[in-house]
Nucleic acid binder design. Structure first.
Lengths: 217, 217
DNA sequence: TTTTATTCGGTAATTAAATACCGAGTTTGG
DNA sequence: CCAAACTCGGTATTTAATTACCGAATAAAA
């Protein structure tokens, strides 16, 4: 219905709103104003108003705000959390294993159904009830059978592109990449990079500044 | 020497440059132009030029570019990768365990030296040669002895703030937070949030758009 | 040596994001 | 029922980020 364009920054703020709203709703609150959201999350109120206006299906009520649960539903719809997407992991190393154990993804509408790896020692075993298949079997037939649209890459950097190509060939629609490389893909494939190095760089740089401001060794 | 201000966005691009430069350097290239970096990473060349100008200690040579290895060193310096920071983990769940196994952090100047948890079953055991201590022992004495300035939070959302407070009280300078909550901290403490939900939201939303554009169920 | 193709640095123009403002309407409390 | 206090939506302003432009300078090729 609404074809409004959300910028990446706006999109990134939504999970924060969602989290707050859920905890407020859980504590019994029924209505919320944009201003309240802003002060809770220490954001600019105009910014929150603008964000909320874009994603909300209803108008706010003056001097009252919006129905929290309706707003939660709107955000979840926009983020696609309301219907479940099946996903699979390629690369059952330490990170991949952690993901197979991690239950939290289902809150975001992501259900990890299986994994692929090339290590014969673990192929056909299970982790947290999710089967590990031979990477050689990752093809379109397989992903149709499993009904998965999302591939998660948790292999080392040097094989990430190769895995991505394999995924595309098998017909995935979206890739969530945890390897610290720039993956080149056809334009119609959705990709989101989760780069630890990038996140760490912000921290690391500020620490550097702090050190050098103080003049410490 | 240079007190130029780097924006968060610029900072986020640096790890990408660094990775590219390293692989080009490894393949024997000696000089690189900003334009080449831009085309490799599919970025705007003016943007790369501006970024590089801010962080480079030397001027570029017309029709030649810059010494790759010098540029690598400059980026590593700015990001603080060139001297090692010791860090510790709080929360030895699946993600925490993965991090204790993961070797890649050392490339970014981050050395995880130990972990804390409250689970008696694992306290005093070791993972990947790194000891796991009782969270009750996380205090200023301890972190001085270990010489750690960075704390990594991998506990569930509902105890993240509590752990963060404990870290601050113990005297850490920076916190890398993997729990999906907004942590409130004194202003002089550096924090970087690594929120899986935020990263996933971008992917999830695009998938939602794709579905609804096609008019599929 | 001269020409040509690049690259640089600095500045200007464009675009996008964040912030501020304001009139209108609604709930709440007297 | 009326006044005061909020909140809204829309618009305007400010700020920051991105992109484009241009003259000068160098390396490489002719």
């Amino acid at each position: 219905m609404e074809n409004k364009h959300l910028s990446k920054n706006q999109l990134r703020r939504l999970p924060g709103y969602l989290h707050l709203l859920k905890s407020l709703s859980a504590s019994g609150m029924k209505y919320i104003s944009c201003q309240t959201i802003a002060s809770c999350l220490d954001l600019n109120k105009e910014q929150v108003r603008k964000d909320v206006a874009l994603i909300s299906s209803i108008d706010g009520i003056p001097n009252k705000g919006r129905d929290i649960n309706l707003l939660i539903k709107d955000i979840e719809t926009i983020l696609g959390y309301d219907d479940t997407n099946n996903a699979f992991i390629v690369g059952v190393g330490s990170l991949g294993t952690a993901f197979l154990h991690y239950k939290g993804f289902e809150n975001f509408g992501l259900k990890i159904v299986c994994a692929f790896d090339k290590n014969p020692a673990i192929i056909n075993s299970k982790i947290s009830d999710k089967p590990i298949y031979d990477i050689a079997n990752l093809n379109s037939e397989m992903i149709n059978k499993l009904n998965v649209k999302i591939g998660i890459i948790t292999v080392p950097a040097d094989s990430a592109q190769e895995v991505a190509d394999l995924m595309v060939k098998a017909g995935v629609e979206a890739i969530w990449n945890f390897a610290p490389v720039n993956i080149v893909l056809p334009k119609d494939i959705i990709i989101s990079n989760m780069d630890l190095a990038t996140s760490l760089s912000v921290l690391s740089h500020q620490l550097y500044l702090k050190k050098h401001k103080k003049g410490e060794e």
